[in-house]
Computed example of a mutant assay.
Amino acid sequence: MSAASAVAPRKQFRWRGLRVPYIAPWSAERTLPGEIVRRVGVSGTGIGYADELSHLDRRRGILWTRQSLARGKGTPDLPGMHPLRQRQAVTHMLCQVCGISTFGADFERWGERHLYVARAQQGWPIGEGEHTVMAPVCLPCATESVDAYPHLRKGWTAALVSYAQPWGVAGITLHQQTLEPLPLPEKGLHRVPNGDPAERWTIAMREVTTLHRVTPVALSDLVAAA
């Protein structure tokens, strides 16, 4: 992605007075049909779409779910994630709310670190090496989000992170014989690390990273310093 496209403003949408996150899916963005078949590839036997287009349906050899693009149409799912936009935000370090690159003035001022905000898990802070499907967020969007979005008003935590390392994907893993979905874990999606044989049997829906050199912070302190 070019430097110009990284900072290019993206159209912002509001719903009931709230700014809709860039990664949030809209009701008009439907999961697209695709017949799942067994395929034999370079890395072994796995799954694929019967009408597969490898340059669109796969990333790093992993099959991804198909979901239409209709951002701004219908009703948004504020805490949800559109597979493609989540992957774009995580891969290119885009703010999950406004969609702009988080490599900016704050990134430099924070010692080349990105800000992450997440729902608090029983009050626990974001930890070193934590696995996450969250993308970073810019400071203005972070301060707006924690006051505006119901799923964050219940509790949130913030941290500055030096780097996010690709770990794997989260999605639906299918039984190798029946091609039926395996029972989902408590967290909702199967998480499969890079290089695991289960990659070949998984329909990815989220990019997963691990966070490193994590420093918990208070947003009020970042705002005051800015």
Rank of each mutant, 00 (worst) to 15 (best):
K154Y: 07
E186L: 13
S220E: 15
P181L: 04
S162M: 12
K187L: 13
L179V: 06
L211G: 00
Y116M: 14
R206E: 12
Q176N: 14
R213V: 10
E108G: 06
A142E: 02
A224D: 06
E199P: 10
L222T: 07
F103N: 11
I126R: 02
A142Y: 00
A142L: 02
H114W: 09
E199R: 07
V137C: 13
G155T: 00
P150R: 11
T102L: 09
I172L: 12
A226D: 11
P166R: 12
C141R: 00
E186T: 10
D106H: 14
L160A: 05
C141E: 10
G195P: 07
R191M: 06
P185V: 03
I100Q: 14
H151Y: 15
P193L: 02
P185H: 13
M205K: 10
T215R: 07
W124L: 15
K154E: 00
P216W: 09
G171A: 04
V192M: 01
H212D: 02
R109H: 07
T143G: 11
T178W: 12
V137P: 02
E186C: 08
Q96S: 11
Q96E: 15
W201I: 02
P136A: 03
G195R: 04
L222H: 03
P183A: 10
F107V: 11
P136G: 02
W201L: 03
P197K: 05
T143P: 05
T132N: 06
L115D: 07
E207D: 15
G104A: 12
E144L: 13
L184H: 13
A224I: 03
E144Y: 15
T210M: 11
H114R: 11
V208A: 11
A225H: 08
C141T: 05
V192Q: 04
G168C: 03
T173Y: 09
M205P: 06
R213A: 14
Y149V: 02
K187Y: 09
V137S: 06
A164H: 04
A225R: 14
F107T: 10
E130M: 13
A148I: 05
G111F: 12
N194G: 11
P181W: 10
E130Y: 03
H212S: 01
T178L: 12
S145P: 07
G155D: 03
T210D: 08
L160R: 01
R153C: 13
F107I: 09
A158T: 13
S220V: 12
I172N: 04
Q165G: 07
A159Y: 05
H212N: 04
R113T: 04
W201C: 03
T157Y: 10
Q121W: 13
L115Q: 08
C141D: 14
D196S: 02
A198S: 10
I126N: 00
F103T: 11
H212C: 04
A170Q: 04
E130S: 05
V192P: 00
A142D: 08
L211W: 01
Q176K: 15
F107Y: 15
L152Q: 12
W167S: 08
A226C: 12
G129I: 00
T209E: 10
V137H: 01
I100L: 14
D221R: 02
I203A: 00
C98T: 11
S101C: 08
W110Y: 15
V208S: 05
Y116L: 09
E186I: 08
H151L: 09
P150Y: 08
V217S: 05
F103G: 07
L139R: 04
L189H: 07
A170C: 01
